[in-house]
Simulated assay, not measured.
Amino acid sequence: MTEARITHIGGPTTLIEAAGWRLLTDPTFDPPGRRYSFGWGTSSRKTSGPALKTSELPPLDAVLLTHDHHADNLDTAGRALLPSADVVLTTPSGAVRLGGTAHGLAPWDTWRLESPGRPAIEVTATPARHGPPLSRPLVGEVTGFALRWEGQRHGALWVTGDTVLYDGVREVAQRVDVGTVLLHLGGVRFPLTGPLRYTMTAAPALELCRLLRPRTVLPVHYEGWSHFQEGRRAVEAALAAADADLSARFTWLPAGTPLDVTV
């Protein structure tokens, strides 16, 4: 039985230990209290700190960075951590900004993590749109990541990235057999832009999961920042009204405590 050990550190940040590899998603390790500008008059305050310190992390083989230009996905301490990883996989524009070991992947591009004595992990960039139609020039590039390696029994491990539900994300359900999904939620909204949402709320998230039919759904990116407008309670209420089979697929990761997930 193949397992991945996943530790939720806070916000979108997770440590994925699988097939002998250690991968970190969207590093955010600053303490709470600071307010960060997201551009165009939008900002957010970090309301809770990470469950682990950077000093408590194991050596990292790779960082999977869905985007580099918003502090709730890469804050100051997280940025300082990047050089310690062998490779940083991110968007093409993010790789240009970061330099160093960063490599940019356009949607459906693939990168192979390879090392003697370990099965290779195939990392495929997946489409994401961090807001409503036509918002990409304002909010910038975002990507998701689908991870495949030899021995998986239930399909790929997919990190959605910060995205709304749109045709590009639905395409993942058509092209990738997803067994486990790290589902970015939060219903991000800002006073300046009114009702517009920049990540999924519960309803579209459940619609996506009905398309995917994954074995395991692991929600992340729903707590710890003031611009997250929909938390766990709202998602659980939506799940209570959904069919029992779908609800049973959701597992809430305990902060800072590793969880072994059958993949």
Rank of each mutant, 00 (worst) to 15 (best):
178 V>T: 10
92 P>S: 01
99 G>A: 09
113 L>D: 03
172 V>M: 05
106 A>T: 03
140 G>M: 08
125 A>R: 03
131 G>K: 09
94 G>N: 06
160 T>L: 09
109 D>V: 00
180 T>W: 03
96 V>D: 09
84 S>W: 00
178 V>H: 07
125 A>V: 02
129 R>G: 06
122 E>Q: 12
124 T>D: 02
107 P>V: 11
153 R>A: 15
175 R>K: 15
102 A>M: 04
138 L>M: 08
136 R>E: 15
108 W>R: 04
177 D>T: 12
173 A>T: 04
90 T>R: 04
165 L>F: 12
123 V>L: 06
118 R>D: 07
117 G>C: 02
103 H>G: 00
118 R>V: 06
172 V>T: 11
154 H>N: 13
112 R>Q: 14
135 S>M: 02
128 A>T: 12
166 Y>D: 15
140 G>Q: 07
130 H>N: 13
111 W>V: 01
175 R>S: 06
121 I>H: 07
101 T>I: 00
141 E>A: 08
178 V>P: 03
107 P>N: 09
88 V>T: 14
142 V>D: 06
151 G>A: 13
174 Q>R: 15
107 P>Y: 10
127 P>M: 11
139 V>Q: 01
118 R>I: 05
99 G>Q: 10
133 P>K: 08
134 L>N: 12
114 E>K: 03
131 G>W: 05
84 S>L: 11
148 R>W: 08
141 E>L: 02
97 R>C: 03
129 R>L: 15
94 G>P: 05
146 A>T: 09
159 V>Q: 07
114 E>C: 02
144 G>C: 08
179 G>Q: 12
149 W>S: 07
98 L>G: 10
145 F>Y: 13
116 P>A: 14
124 T>M: 13
130 H>D: 12
93 S>C: 01
135 S>W: 00
95 A>R: 07
123 V>C: 07
94 G>F: 05
88 V>K: 02
111 W>A: 10
154 H>R: 14
90 T>V: 04
96 V>Q: 14
118 R>L: 14
127 P>K: 13
104 G>E: 01
118 R>Y: 11
120 A>S: 14
140 G>N: 08
180 T>M: 09
159 V>D: 01
122 E>Y: 02
91 T>N: 05
122 E>V: 07
106 A>P: 00
90 T>L: 06
139 V>R: 11
126 T>K: 09
150 E>T: 13
89 L>M: 10
130 H>S: 05
159 V>T: 03
168 G>M: 10
104 G>H: 02
147 L>N: 12
103 H>P: 00
164 V>N: 12
117 G>Y: 04
100 G>K: 05
171 E>Q: 15
153 R>K: 13
87 V>I: 11
153 R>I: 06
84 S>D: 10
126 T>S: 12
180 T>G: 09
91 T>A: 05
170 R>S: 13
106 A>L: 00
165 L>N: 11
150 E>I: 05
87 V>C: 02
128 A>D: 03
158 W>Q: 09
165 L>C: 13
113 L>T: 05
164 V>E: 02
87 V>D: 02
96 V>C: 01
86 D>F: 01
96 V>G: 00
97 R>F: 01
142 V>N: 12
110 T>F: 00
132 P>V: 10
178 V>K: 09
153 R>S: 14
109 D>T: 00
132 P>E: 07
177 D>Y: 01
158 W>I: 14
117 G>I: 02
96 V>R: 12
174 Q>D: 15
172 V>C: 10
